[in-house]
Design a protein around this nucleic acid. Structure first.
Lengths: 337, 337
DNA sequence: GAACTTTTTGCACCCGAGTGCAGAACCTCT
DNA sequence: AGAGGTTCTGCACTCGGGTGCAAAAAGTTC
């Protein structure tokens, strides 16, 4: 692929020579709002174009304190929502000049080396998206040097060293709970995902509280150890199969869609019941298949694009504190509840 | 997050001083099979540990001809199989010291800038995974400088500038076709994905040929313009809904699972028929939900892990030619066909 | 057109490490 | 112990561009 006629890279020096200016002027031409006359800039750009020059980002990162690179840590590959998040995040980042290093921390032992590696690449920020092992990762991050910003995306955190960008779980869950109450469901089961301490979702807590305030009892619940539809199907089965018909919930409120999909599958195919006829199901995230003809899932949609854009705002912000932000989404009512 | 007590980065020089050796010896200590005595190395490592030194990868990339970085170009976020591929690839890459730049080329206009950007980061290779717009991307890649290796993953290509790592589509499809014949299906419909010229799947061609050889007729087919279950559900509906009952296929052979999932959804929920009772469905990829209680999809599994490892072999190989390789997977028979 | 501003441009120095080779240190064998 | 070989270590030079400031050019004002 490499052009054999150009044994050496074309550098700013080459362009400078071609354009009859100094190297620094060439750099300025490539820098947004640098102090350079339009005339010189266009002359430089023409020369650069002709020579096929593009600035080397490694050299730039080395020389400056910024790399325009972020590490995206993900360990939740069974959750279809992650694909949506990746799409939205990479798009928002790229459109504003940021590159994304995708780091797989599925194996918890990889988390620490991953952070270390990110620091070796001088990433300007590390973004955690919906991690199961975030406690550990956070601990590792604190130890790592040069991790400038730590952003927890789509998940809450009170950690002062961290910026958390997520939906307002309390408000969202209150809306969901209200919907469940209004529609007259009486025996909800809350299907929760893995619990972590550093980064959380307040969904189960909020639902429990609201339900208790309104009905005076703590709702039933069950926990799945990963946001995996297949695992969720297992847990749903183990939880519901032993019960007599009238001990079954009339609605399963799920911490997210990954769990909801599995729950629906089990209700239909392993319990032989219908959704929402026998048991209704409500999710969170609005994954693509939630809108498909099979699930028609009632769920809560997070404003992903908006959140992704805000994330880039945070990256570009000079502030280092008080950047947390909670977003409001919307309940998308379909057929499942 | 940055330790305020260390205003400056700790560099190899610092470690060298602390360990009483030269900087170059420090570098050697961090380099696999470098010429250095075990004694010196452990001394250096101890000092490095104490100071919290890690080599700066930007500086390394700048000084050498390798960056240990690859760009992963993806534009197919609706296909759940991509999440599996991302997981396998990032894991294989990381375990052997490679970092992954995730580049979203969903918008075809982003492809060229994405390639450019990758070259600015001096990636050692660009990996294309299942692109819809690969023709365009390839063309852009040829123009870009410094794109050393171009690898097409999970898709075939005859392009000599490219290394293609994928399953043997012909063998796989022949096995599928044989299965379809053996099980006595008589009216298949082949559901194909988008067609590209540079990088291809030979599934439709092969199925058509085998069927024609055996039954003397060209099988029915339809095309979906993206590997998106929702879109596939639409196309399946538009194709099948107008037909009378006995003009319906008895099996839908899908180019991959993304299409198969959508087809099943439509058969069940929009046509009110059963799978496999009325219409059987067969997929390709073995996405996670294929194993779930809802789909129980019969499909062909690609040896992803093996393929990912081979990809890293290619990266590390000094050869630049003749690295294409076809893998064999296995037909996973479940309930859908 | 002199005196003063403001905009442009040039430059010294630095970011942190890889390469290939020459010289030093160590080891083996007789 | 010394020759001959092997393993280590040190160094000059290089990768490509950012920063802050000083000098130069261009623009203003009276």
């Amino acid at each position: 692929m490499t052009d054999p006629t150009s044994p050496r890279n074309v550098t700013a020096d080459d362009v400078a020579e071609a354009a009859g200016v100094s190297r620094w002027t060439v750099n300025r031409a490539f820098k947004k709002d640098a102090s350079i006359s339009p005339k010189t800039r266009s002359k430089v750009m023409a020369a650069a174009q002709a020579l096929g020059y593009v600035p080397d980002l490694h050299a730039a990162a080395l020389a400056s304190t910024r790399s325009n690179l972020v590490a995206l840590l993900i360990d939740d590959f069974a959750n279809p929502h992650k694909l949506v998040m990746l799409e939205r995040l990479t798009r928002a980042l790229r459109s504003r000049g940021w590159d994304t290093l995708l780091v797989n921390t599925l194996d918890p032992d990889d988390a620490a080396p991953a952070l270390l590696n990110a620091s070796q690449r001088r990433v300007d920020a590390t973004i955690l998206i919906g991690l199961q092992f975030d406690d550990e990762v956070l601990r590792a991050a604190y130890k790592a040097r040069r991790v400038k910003k730590l952003i927890i995306f789509a998940r809450g955190s009170e950690d002062p060293n961290t910026t958390s960008i997520c939906v307002d779980d309390e408000a969202a869950t209150r809306e969901i709970a209200q919907y469940v109450l209004t529609r007259g469901y009486r025996r909800p089961l809350f299907l929760a995902g893995p619990r972590t301490t550093s980064a959380h979702l307040l969904r189960k807590e909020t639902f429990t509280r609201v339900w208790q305030e309104n009905r005076g009892v703590v709702p039933d619940s069950a926990t799945v150890t990963a946001y995996d539809p297949l695992l969720s199907a297992e847990v749903a089965h183990d939880t519901l199969a032993p019960r007599s018909r009238d001990a079954l919930p009339d609605i399963i409120v799920c911490e997210n869609d990954a769990l909801a999909l599995g729950a629906i599958d089990t209700i239909r195919h392993r319990l032989g019941l219908t959704v929402p006829g026998d048991i209704a199901v409500i999710g969170f995230d609005d994954v693509p298949q939630a809108a498909g003809p099979n699930y028609r899932l009632t769920t809560y949609r997070q404003p992903m694009t908006e959140m992704a854009n805000y994330l880039v705002d945070v990256l570009e912000s000079a502030e280092t504190t008080d950047l947390d932000r909670r977003f409001l989404g919307e309940l998308v009512v379909r057929d499942s509840a």
